[in-house]
Every structure is written in C-alpha cells, then in structure tokens.
C-alpha cells in the first residue's frame, strides 16, 4: 500500500453535503466544529461553478506538524496525519499553517476560549487503544481499524469524494478522465501531496450568457 489520500473530483460534486453529514454523524462532532465542509467557487456563474469537499488532506509534508509547539502531530505508516489531544494546548498555530483550514477549535469556555484542536482523522481515531471508548470520545470512530474507508467518501452519492490508497485512487481518476475526455481540477492535490500535474488545468471559463431579446 502506498499511502492514504483524499481526492475530490470537482466535476462530480453536486454540493449535497452528504459527506459533511456523514462525518458529523459518524463521529458525533460537536456543534460549531466541522471536520469536513463543502466549498463552492464561482457561485452562480453558469458553467464555472464548482464545489469541493474540503477537510484535512493528510499532507505528505504537513505544515501543521511543522508549526506545532508541542509536537502533538504524528503520521501513521499509511500517511494519515493524526494528533494527540492530551498534548494539544489549543494555541491555533496549526490553523494558521494549514492551507485547507482543516483544524477546528471547539469553544471551551467564555470569551471564545479555544479548546483542543479537532480535525479529520481519516476515520483512523487517535493515539488511544483502537476502537476503545476513550478513542471514540476523543477522536471519533476508528473505521480504518474495522477495514472500512472514511465515512464521507463511502457516503458520497456521486463518488466525487474518493478516499483510500493513492494508487487505487489514481487508477479510478485516470479512468474517469479517459472516459469523459478531459481532466478535471484535482483541487488541493499538489498542495497536499506535492505532486505537480503534467500540465496545469485550463482555467474554467464561464459559459456565454444568453441575452434576452
């Protein structure tokens, strides 16, 4: 196995928010914390509107890991970036470093006091005994230890959001591009995994607006 990755095919995402709901439900994420969310670009522009499901991309060279003052992040053998909530001091440095805005902070008290950071775990839990009560309460369900992929991707109705081994995802995406005859915008892929596309995708142009006669 190469490493775990997320891919969001912007050509397919229909902004249904099924991934967001699946994540919220699977991990019982508190109000105000969104491990995953759907972002829409060029909203309302015909032909140029694209939606992308965004969460922690589990970067190859994770900037959150680099800036953490207490070194609470670690990367598993499968490339999943996780953190130890017992060490996190809620400083928020990771939030400023992350290019995807993934780290979330629950309100821990009055005057906007930040709690310990919470983010997508690729449904892999955290540094507690796998599938234990402590792990589920702190980090959410550990689906990877059950031999399952992240709930968001498995729930995606159009399979815009793919999760799993990078090699398998590449094969799936390659086949899609071959069949539809054009490359989609793999948003965030180069930022997260440092793999530059052979040719940069052409910018999306809005469709010509029809003038009323």
């Amino acid at each position: 196995m190469a490493r775990m990755k997320f891919i969001c095919d912007a050509e397919r995402c229909i902004e249904c928010n099924g991934c967001v709901t699946a994540c919220k439900n699977e991990h019982d994420v508190p109000w105000g914390v969104n491990r995953r969310r759907v972002v829409t670009l060029n909203d309302g522009i015909v032909g140029a509107e694209r939606s992308i499901s965004v969460a922690c991309m589990h970067c190859s060279d994770a900037p959150c890991k680099a800036v953490c003052p207490v070194n609470c992040f670690y990367t598993t053998d499968d490339g999943v970036v996780l953190h130890d909530k017992d060490l996190c001091i809620g400083c928020g440095y990771c939030f400023y470093a992350c290019p995807f805005g993934a780290p979330q902070f629950p309100q821990a008290g009055a005057f906007g006091l930040r709690g310990k950071m919470d983010k997508c775990t690729f449904c892999a839990g955290g540094p507690e005994k796998d599938t234990s009560k402590a792990e589920t309460e702190k980090y959410g369900r550990n689906r990877l230890a059950e031999g399952k992929l992240p709930a968001c991707a498995e729930m995606c109705s159009t399979k815009a959001l793919l999760a799993g081994d990078g090699d398998v995802l590449s094969d799936i995406y390659r086949e899609r591009v071959m069949r539809r005859g054009r490359g989609g915008d793999l948003w965030g892929h180069a930022t997260a995994y440092g793999v530059k596309a052979s040719s940069s995708p052409a910018p999306v142009q809005p469709a010509p607006t029809q003038q009323k006669s």
């Binding site: 890991k65 003052p69 207490v70 070194n71 609470c72 992040f73 670690y74 598993t76 053998d77 499968d78 996780l82 953190h83 130890d84 017992d86 060490l87 892999a124 839990g125 955290g126 540094p127 507690e128 005994k129 796998d130 599938t131 550990n142 990877l144 230890a145």
Partner: peptide, 17 residues
Amino acid sequence: VKPGQSAAKPDDKPYQN
C-alpha cells in the same frame, strides 16, 4: 519537545485487532 520528533503517545496499528 525534540525538534522533528512527535511527542504523541504511540498508536496501535489498525490491523492489530
């Protein structure tokens, strides 16, 4: 804190169950 080393607790492997 040792630079470049995670201070997190060791985690179980997902297949050790």
